[in-house]
Design a protein around this nucleic acid. Structure first.
Lengths: 203, 203, 203, 203
DNA sequence: ACTTAACCGAGACGGTACGTCATGTCTTCCA
DNA sequence: TGGAAGACATGACGTACCGTCTCGGTTAAGT
């Protein structure tokens, strides 16, 4: 049986790629962004210069600046939160807290801010991020909601995709699109409560 | 007699700027974007070539590519919606419809899509858009909510900024950040109802 | 033609050209060159700026930068020397002194130096200078030589054009093409003597 | 063992410069000038376009347009003449013939004409030309004259620098500064004879 | 130990765009 | 109507980066 990576893969002749170079490249990008270099000025040429690496060494690994950033994001993205599972409310609060954390991080780190700001300009990067980060989390929330409906915590006459957006949307709006808005500690709590209870009096 | 435009405005010496050139420039940008030219390839040089205009004529008017896009956005942005004023619910639906319309437009028009996608990468553009478009609309919603509270349509124990986000967030999430999600005709209605009523059973 | 030169001519409708503007332009060029501005940087634009004059006002008077310099040179060129007429030798010395003077002036004045250095690059300027300055002086020397032959001061078996060059050439070489060579007070004397007497021993 | 090229010469890292590009650039300049393009229109941009070469490839080799022309001149300048050494008179005739040849060439070739015309406007070019071409030839003539004095062909009571100018000046005047004057075959002979013998009757 | 082949850094290559400046023409207001 | 002010299309300037391509020199795996 093929030991690891499958079938008739050719034996890789020649000198193997240096992990050191790869790390140097990624580190250089991070360093540049943390030094506040505008992302538009993070050119391949400059990365190579900073990393002390030939340009070809970068192009050998990533065809695009986008592709490089995809890998970079994967390094940066915090792990998915662990849900307590005690109730839909608690689980939703934890998920929203995780979103809030990222929002806080984005305001702190020039790196995160710029990468996220740019992401929609790079379709492949955006698609990759959507597939590997956003969609899995939506799936988790969807499951939380489904259990919430089953447990009688959530109405069963609503489109769960819509409900998903009702919880996630406000937090994203706050954390990503309104960089001046406060991100208080109890924000997740308040959003979940308000969406659950409604904003109509006596509801 | 007021000389022309009021105050102590200086008499503009020399040949006045040609409106034709200005229009040609803006039209060229629109044309390029509508032809699907990636926004990163919309260089000043290319705009000038397309518009049949000297580069200096562009730089004379806008110091940045950003600044140009600010003006472009102003041309494109649809007018603020007219609120019926019959009830907070109706007003909110109209505001959200207007957001939905822009979402639909962004999916149709490559121009809008790319400009919005890029906007956060250009801080000045983003700030200008925030100040001239987003904040005024938030202000309108804030006023609608205030009246809603006064009329007893909305609870008076909630932070209205939060409520604002509860209504706007889901629609923005759908229309801007989830380009694959459907934007049904009744979406605004459903969001407003759900946020008003809450998603807890019996609420 | 200059409107102020036409005797009892009525002011022919319209504003006459201002002498002040013309003088301001020429003065500006002189000032720039004397300030050591490299002649390549003496653009029409800059002249206009320095003179406080519109570009069109310059182009209205001179079609070229060359044409402007032609007029400028005429202002600068010293008057033709007055020959004593006592002998060919004396007359030649005076002519050569005059050449030497200009050579000294060229080393002193950046203006003169640069204008002469550039002149051959501007065919019309060069032709004008040749016709109005060089050729008249050659003519004078030709006449001096002719009288010298008649008076027996100069051999009659030589081409006078060649003799002309024998006297003028060495002084021009010294003063114009060898800017480091000394221009001693007695240089004209020594050249005239040596050319007259020859450099062969016993000649 | 000597490694290759002698001293501690550094090993040249990176891709070596292409001789083909260099030749293409110089050829392009020559071609442009020979096509009668005014030297002022021989822009770096145009050279690059004509040579099918990137602008950077030119700037990598020459910092200036001047520096480029210095190299160009070195290619063009004919070799120093071989002196027969039979007598000072013969040697001087050969040197002057060589000057005359260049004069003829300058009238034939637009390239040479313009380059020489412009040279004094480019101080570095002029200095380089002076040092590498003019001064060496003056040195040769100086040596010829010294031997002439020793051999009794030339008076020993004259400043040899002056004598140098007496021979060279007339030919330069004819060939460089009087482009309309004839450059007959026997011109060198006649100048040398006249300067040796003097123009005074019975000298 | 010796090939072989892909790696490495460095940097040159033909391009394209940058933002500035000068050209010569034009337009508009002021005197 | 002349003049200043300055906008206009054009095009060169010198720099930076693009992505590709040599170079000379490693660095393993497979003979």
């Amino acid at each position: 049986m093929a030991p690891d990576e499958g079938g008739g893969r050719k034996a890789p002749r020649g000198r193997p790629r240096s992990e050191a170079a790869e790390r140097a490249i990624l580190d250089a990008v991070v360093a540049l962004l943390e030094d506040g270099v505008p992302l538009g000025e993070v050119s391949i040429e400059r990365i190579a210069r900073t990393a002390g690496v030939g340009k070809a060494t970068i192009y050998r690994r990533w065809c695009d600046k986008e592709a490089l950033f995809v890998d970079l994001l994967r390094d940066i993205e915090p792990p998915e939160p662990v849900l307590p599972g005690t109730s839909a409310r608690e689980d939703l609060v934890v998920m929203l807290e995780s979103l809030r954390d990222r929002g806080v991080a984005q305001r702190t780190s020039a790196l995160l801010y710029h990468v996220f700001a740019q992401m929609k300009s790079y379709p492949k990067l955006w698609a990759a991020y959507h597939a590997t980060v956003i969609e899995p989390r939506r799936l988790i929330v969807r499951e939380v909601l489904r259990r919430g409906v089953a447990d009688g915590e959530i109405r069963d006459d609503l489109d769960l995709e819509l409900v998903n957006d009702l919880f996630i949307g406000p937090m994203l709006l706050r954390s990503v699109m309104r960089p001046d808005a406060p991100l208080d500690d109890d924000l997740a709590q308040r959003i979940v409560s308000a969406v659950l209870d409604g904003v109509r009096p006596g509801s």
